[in-house]
Amino acid sequence: MKILDITGAILTLIGSIFIFLGALGVLRMPDVYNRIQTGTKASTLGTMLTLTGIGMIHPGWFGKIAILIIFIAITNPVSSHVLARAAHFINIPLTSKTVVDKLRESKIEEMENALKLEEEQKNDF
Protein backbone atom coordinates (compact mmCIF):
# COMPACT_ATOMS: atom_id res chain seq x y z
CA MET A 1 0.00 0.00 0.00
CA LYS A 2 2.67 2.45 1.09
CA ILE A 3 5.03 1.33 -1.67
CA LEU A 4 2.36 1.88 -4.33
CA ASP A 5 1.82 5.43 -3.10
CA ILE A 6 5.52 6.25 -3.21
CA THR A 7 5.97 4.69 -6.67
CA GLY A 8 2.99 6.65 -7.93
CA ALA A 9 4.37 9.89 -6.57
CA ILE A 10 7.79 9.26 -8.15
CA LEU A 11 6.20 8.44 -11.54
CA THR A 12 4.11 11.61 -11.39
CA LEU A 13 7.24 13.63 -10.61
CA ILE A 14 9.17 12.11 -13.53
CA GLY A 15 6.21 12.84 -15.81
CA SER A 16 6.13 16.48 -14.74
CA ILE A 17 9.89 16.77 -15.36
CA PHE A 18 9.42 15.49 -18.90
CA ILE A 19 6.56 17.93 -19.49
CA PHE A 20 8.78 20.75 -18.19
CA LEU A 21 11.57 19.72 -20.57
CA GLY A 22 9.07 19.75 -23.42
CA ALA A 23 8.03 23.28 -22.50
CA LEU A 24 11.69 24.32 -22.39
CA GLY A 25 12.12 22.80 -25.84
CA VAL A 26 9.20 24.81 -27.20
CA LEU A 27 10.96 27.91 -25.87
CA ARG A 28 14.44 27.10 -27.20
CA MET A 29 13.85 25.50 -30.60
CA PRO A 30 14.22 27.75 -33.64
CA ASP A 31 11.19 26.93 -35.83
CA VAL A 32 7.67 25.48 -35.79
CA TYR A 33 8.56 21.93 -36.80
CA ASN A 34 11.27 21.48 -34.18
CA ARG A 35 8.95 22.93 -31.56
CA ILE A 36 6.20 20.50 -32.48
CA GLN A 37 8.72 17.65 -32.26
CA THR A 38 9.84 18.39 -28.73
CA GLY A 39 6.36 19.35 -27.56
CA THR A 40 4.65 16.18 -28.77
CA LYS A 41 7.13 13.64 -27.49
CA ALA A 42 7.63 15.12 -24.06
CA SER A 43 3.97 15.82 -23.43
CA THR A 44 2.89 12.33 -24.53
CA LEU A 45 5.25 10.40 -22.27
CA GLY A 46 4.87 12.98 -19.49
CA THR A 47 1.08 12.73 -19.47
CA MET A 48 1.21 8.94 -19.63
CA LEU A 49 3.59 8.73 -16.68
CA THR A 50 1.57 11.22 -14.64
CA LEU A 51 -1.64 9.30 -15.29
CA THR A 52 0.01 5.99 -14.40
CA GLY A 53 1.22 7.54 -11.16
CA ILE A 54 -2.29 8.69 -10.31
CA GLY A 55 -3.56 5.22 -11.18
CA MET A 56 -1.14 3.70 -8.69
CA ILE A 57 -2.29 6.02 -5.93
CA HIS A 58 -5.99 5.32 -6.69
CA PRO A 59 -6.18 1.72 -7.97
CA GLY A 60 -9.96 2.02 -8.49
CA TRP A 61 -9.50 4.42 -11.39
CA PHE A 62 -7.41 1.98 -13.41
CA GLY A 63 -9.92 1.52 -16.24
CA LYS A 64 -10.50 5.19 -16.89
CA ILE A 65 -6.77 5.87 -16.82
CA ALA A 66 -6.11 3.08 -19.33
CA ILE A 67 -8.66 4.65 -21.70
CA LEU A 68 -7.12 8.09 -21.23
CA ILE A 69 -3.65 6.74 -22.03
CA ILE A 70 -4.88 5.05 -25.22
CA PHE A 71 -6.74 8.22 -26.21
CA ILE A 72 -3.64 10.36 -25.70
CA ALA A 73 -1.45 7.88 -27.58
CA ILE A 74 -3.74 8.20 -30.61
CA THR A 75 -4.71 11.87 -30.56
CA ASN A 76 -1.42 13.54 -29.64
CA PRO A 77 0.67 12.38 -32.63
CA VAL A 78 -2.25 12.82 -35.02
CA SER A 79 -2.82 16.41 -33.95
CA SER A 80 0.87 17.27 -34.20
CA HIS A 81 1.00 15.70 -37.67
CA VAL A 82 -1.98 17.79 -38.76
CA LEU A 83 -0.43 20.96 -37.30
CA ALA A 84 2.87 20.35 -39.07
CA ARG A 85 1.08 19.61 -42.33
CA ALA A 86 -0.95 22.82 -42.10
CA ALA A 87 2.20 24.80 -41.27
CA HIS A 88 3.95 23.45 -44.33
CA PHE A 89 0.86 24.10 -46.42
CA ILE A 90 0.83 27.82 -45.67
CA ASN A 91 4.61 28.01 -46.22
CA ILE A 92 5.86 28.75 -42.75
CA PRO A 93 9.64 28.88 -43.29
CA LEU A 94 12.04 26.33 -41.86
CA THR A 95 15.02 27.44 -39.82
CA SER A 96 18.25 28.48 -41.56
CA LYS A 97 20.02 25.38 -40.20
CA THR A 98 17.81 23.19 -42.39
CA VAL A 99 19.67 20.76 -44.62
CA VAL A 100 17.02 19.50 -47.02
CA ASP A 101 13.29 19.91 -47.76
CA LYS A 102 12.08 17.08 -49.94
CA LEU A 103 8.42 17.95 -49.53
CA ARG A 104 8.87 21.39 -51.07
CA GLU A 105 10.96 19.88 -53.87
CA SER A 106 8.21 17.39 -54.63
CA LYS A 107 5.58 20.13 -54.57
CA ILE A 108 7.61 22.32 -56.95
CA GLU A 109 8.09 19.35 -59.24
CA GLU A 110 4.37 18.68 -59.23
CA MET A 111 3.60 22.30 -60.06
CA GLU A 112 6.10 22.32 -62.91
CA ASN A 113 4.57 19.15 -64.28
CA ALA A 114 1.11 20.72 -64.14
CA LEU A 115 2.39 23.84 -65.94
CA LYS A 116 4.03 21.72 -68.62
CA LEU A 117 0.83 19.77 -69.11
CA GLU A 118 -1.11 23.00 -69.49
CA GLU A 119 1.30 24.35 -72.08
CA GLU A 120 1.17 21.11 -74.03
CA GLN A 121 -2.59 21.27 -74.08
CA LYS A 122 -2.39 24.87 -75.30
CA ASN A 123 -0.04 23.83 -78.09
CA ASP A 124 -2.38 21.04 -79.10
CA PHE A 125 -5.26 23.38 -79.75
Binding site: L24, N34, L45, G46, K97, V100, K102, L103
Partner: peptide, 26 residues
Protein backbone atom coordinates in the same frame (compact mmCIF):
# COMPACT_ATOMS: atom_id res chain seq x y z
CA UNK B 1 11.33 3.89 -28.53
CA UNK B 2 9.11 6.43 -26.77
CA UNK B 3 11.31 6.49 -23.68
CA UNK B 4 14.44 6.73 -25.85
CA UNK B 5 12.92 9.64 -27.77
CA UNK B 6 12.19 11.48 -24.55
CA UNK B 7 15.77 11.19 -23.38
CA UNK B 8 16.82 12.35 -26.84
CA UNK B 9 14.59 15.41 -26.50
CA UNK B 10 15.94 16.07 -23.02
CA UNK B 11 19.51 15.89 -24.29
CA UNK B 12 18.85 18.24 -27.19
CA UNK B 13 16.97 20.76 -25.09
CA UNK B 14 19.35 20.91 -22.18
CA UNK B 15 22.67 21.00 -24.04
CA UNK B 16 23.68 24.65 -24.51
CA UNK B 17 24.78 24.45 -28.15
CA UNK B 18 21.36 23.13 -29.35
CA UNK B 19 22.66 20.22 -31.49
CA UNK B 20 20.14 20.12 -34.32
CA UNK B 21 20.57 19.46 -38.03
CA UNK B 22 16.96 19.44 -39.28
CA UNK B 23 15.43 18.72 -42.64
CA UNK B 24 12.49 17.05 -44.35
CA UNK B 25 13.27 13.71 -45.99
CA UNK B 26 11.16 11.30 -48.02
Amino acid sequence: ELIKSNFDVAYRVVSPSLPINPGIVA
